[in-house]
Write a protein that binds this DNA or RNA. Structure first.
Lengths: 199, 199
DNA sequence: ACAAAAAGTGCACGAGCGTGCGTATTCTAA
DNA sequence: TTAGAATACGCACGCTCGTGCACTTTTTGT
């Protein structure tokens, strides 16, 4: 029972790398089998069906993301330092660590945003969870803490900047992408710090 | 020779609607044929190969986008009013007019951002062209006009907000999505108006 | 060490894919 | 109105897809 989990991990990892480039739906069992060195049915047996594989890939991506971005941030002091750390690590994730084609979850989020099913449900829950995780970190940027509307707005802004960064960096090959993203982020932080009592 | 162009248009339009939901690669000739009421080969003959279809879909989307967002904006006075108009129409486009699954070009931009080929080349050129179109409209928001770096930064910000809006609206079903997007946009405009000489 | 369980293989299936080709139909211009 | 071109169809091809099943090999607990 131990060996199975190991190879399953390798399968999911490899599938995630491929999905980051082509998207989840475009990753075939054959491709994975060749990459991992198994037979097609050997790969298939680890999952009841294709959907299960997709979910497993996304779950593994979330775990890896949290381990690389969120967990290490807990050692950083709350407030601006921690948030900045998270943002920078998040950009790293999108740039390289998420996979050769960026972040599999972002790719899937666009791919499935209008396709009902378990994948979309998972992605919805994932984003909401992450927003609830990020919110408190933003909230405590000021004293007194920011009101919920401003927190939601900032979460939206930050997520948008990360998405914009991905496109600028991956599709447009813009070497300035990181500067643009951090520029937008820094401006947001400053804005929040300066007007804590604004509407 | 006239009839052909008409049906080709119908094919491309229908394929675009499908691509906005599932992505370009997931649209099969069979699906298009059924939707348009042609045979599979009848559809195929209008394009040398699948790639040509993909390009045609994107070109048509660009035309429609420009006709719905950019062209009507030319009647609005330059500066803040026109830019605001463009942004609002852009959100409309992402929300409904681009297709049942949003904007086919955005979907494709994520789908192909790491897949070399003519589709990616087209998308790159498209984004750069749009950025060059948008730039001058931002530049003249202030007097004296904004320096290039601030213009690039604002273009990045705005594009990011639109992407963020798409995700918030489509994947997360957030009824506040539009408020968040316009909120971010308004804040950007105000920021630019207030500090015209900043770094 | 051995039996039970787990993991992986090989093969075949039905379906769907893009594409090519010969033929039929429909449009268009003289 | 009729020849010729444009358009669409039907069919078949080679290939890949996800999935199912019977089988063999490997791992694991006792």
């Amino acid at each position: 029972m131990r060996k199975g989990e190991a190879t399953r991990g390798r399968i999911v990892s490899e599938a995630g790398r491929m999905a980051s480039v082509r998207g989840l739906a475009a990753v075939s069992l054959n491709d994975i089998a060749e990459a991992v060195g198994l037979s097609k049915s050997g790969v298939f047996k680890h999952f009841g069906d294709k959907d299960e594989l997709h979910l497993a890939v996304l779950e593994a991506s979330v775990d890896r993301f949290l381990a690389l971005v969120w967990t290490p941030s807990l050692k950083i002091p709350t407030g601006k330092p921690r948030l900045k750390f998270i943002f920078e690590r998040w950009l790293d994730w999108v740039e390289t660590e998420g996979g050769p084609g960026g972040c599999p979850m972002m790719q899937a989020s666009v791919e499935y945003d209008d396709q009902p099913g378990r994948v979309r449900d998972f992605l919805q829950a994932m984003h909401r969870r992450w927003a609830r995780t990020l919110g408190p970190e933003i909230r405590v940027l000021t004293s007194p803490p920011l009101p919920p509307e401003q927190v939601d707005q900032a979460v939206f802004d930050i997520k948008s900047y990360v998405m914009g960064f991905g496109q600028q960096r991956r599709l447009l090959d813009d070497v300035q992408a990181r500067r643009l993203a951090t520029g937008a982020f820094e401006a947001l932080i400053e804005r929040l710090s300066l007007e804590p009592a604004a509407a």
